[in-house]
Simulated assay, not measured.
Amino acid sequence: MLPLRIELKNKIPKGGSVNIKTFCFSKRDLSNLFRCFYFVISSGINLVKGINILKGFLRNRKYNNILNNIFQYIAIGNSLSESMKLTGCFPDFVIELIKIGENTGKLEEIFLELSSYYEEEYNFEAKLKEAIYYPIFLLSTSFVAFLIISKQVIPKFFVLFRELNIKELPQITKYAIYFNKIFYYFILGFIFMILAFFVLSIVRNKRIKMFYHRIMLSVPLYKDIKTNLEISRFTKCLALILESGGSIIEALESSKKLIGNLIMYEDVEGAINDIKLGKSISEAFNISRTFPLFFIELISVGEETGELEDSLKNISNFLNAEILKRLKSLVNIINPIIIIIISVHVGFLVLSIMLPMFELLNNFNL
């Protein structure tokens, strides 16, 4: 999510800053906004006039706030890329691309590419959410159901058994009583673990963040999905900047800021330093701890054939498909396992309650 600034001083010096509040753009919002910029520029309309037209056309406070800021920045002499940078709501690689577009006269194509980029990102994230929503819903509802049963239902039966003076309970019922006693400790432990991971994920201390990111990359399933996701976004952004005419160093410097894992981020920084010293891209990434071998090999092929941008796009497309395939396979495995666990648990609870009842009825019949 990206911040949108909505307060502007009356006069802002060129290259200056502004005291502002923040707002958020979704990827779909960015796609729509960049497509609107593409239509304005491709129509040959003056940029300042075009922004005013967009404000009237979009009729959306979220868009109009940013367009109004950009309009005022341009009006006092800033370029479009400088104006968008001053708003603080666009990532560095977007600013870099727009700056390249201004210098090369390809601004129209840049906005179209950015719109497509964010549309693809939005669609990909929607597929990811679709793949994990059902198991999360199933787990959540099951957890709540177990909590209610353990808190409200089971204790009442146990009290009933004591009142009826049942001397010897079946072994399965004893297990149920014991499980019910320790169930809250499991809940507290689970909540503590979630809170611990949340705190570690938002802490600003670099050493602690490095420790947390290193741990997360050691989790087998998470490691594969997270690494593929980071590399996919990194290579897609890299290809976009290179295709627009940016240098490899500029592209790497901008693209690395999309990487959320500090271990991978440091690997990219190390590769950038090696490239500055004269190494090729594939050689620079060859000593990486987190970038896989196939990534390095495809980069090497792209360098040799002069089609590096195509290689980067192929890497991104392949990894996106691989992430979705793995998630769907995982969901297909998890769903029946969850259902089996729920069925076994419900059966266990039913037996633990019904067996003492049957025994009580048999005693009455005698």
Results as ranks from 00 to 15, higher is better:
60 N>V: 02
227 T>P: 01
188 L>D: 12
68 N>M: 05
224 D>H: 12
13 P>Y: 09
247 S>F: 06
300 S>V: 00
38 Y>F: 06
196 A>P: 02
147 L>P: 10
332 N>C: 01
201 S>D: 01
83 S>E: 08
172 I>K: 02
45 I>F: 03
119 E>I: 03
95 I>F: 03
159 V>Q: 09
274 D>A: 14
286 N>R: 15
28 R>E: 13
49 K>R: 15
47 L>F: 01
332 N>Q: 13
79 S>N: 06
134 Y>W: 04
166 I>N: 05
228 N>R: 14
239 A>I: 00
294 F>A: 13
24 C>I: 14
87 T>P: 00
31 S>V: 07
331 V>F: 04
126 A>K: 15
315 I>E: 06
141 T>W: 05
5 R>A: 13
309 E>G: 07
50 G>D: 01
283 E>A: 13
111 F>H: 05
363 N>I: 07
81 S>H: 00
100 I>Q: 01
304 E>L: 08
168 E>W: 01
351 L>S: 10
131 A>M: 07
23 F>G: 15
249 I>Q: 06
15 G>I: 03
77 G>E: 14
211 F>W: 08
125 E>V: 04
224 D>G: 08
166 I>E: 03
138 L>V: 11
364 F>M: 12
78 N>V: 03
204 R>G: 10
248 I>W: 06
358 F>V: 13
324 L>F: 04
56 G>Q: 03
12 I>Q: 07
209 K>Q: 12
144 V>A: 07
44 G>C: 04
203 V>W: 07
265 Y>D: 05
242 L>D: 08
355 L>I: 09
363 N>Q: 15
51 I>M: 02
250 E>I: 04
188 L>F: 09
16 G>V: 06
43 S>N: 03
202 I>Y: 11
242 L>H: 02
212 Y>Q: 03
26 S>N: 15
183 F>A: 10
190 F>H: 12
46 N>H: 13
295 F>G: 01
266 E>F: 01
131 A>F: 05
118 Y>C: 03
200 L>H: 02
13 P>K: 11
329 S>E: 14
54 L>S: 08
207 R>W: 03
32 N>K: 14
246 G>D: 08
126 A>H: 12
268 V>R: 00
294 F>D: 15
278 G>C: 08
107 L>T: 12
189 G>I: 07
224 D>P: 00
128 L>G: 03
296 I>T: 15
30 L>H: 10
89 C>H: 00
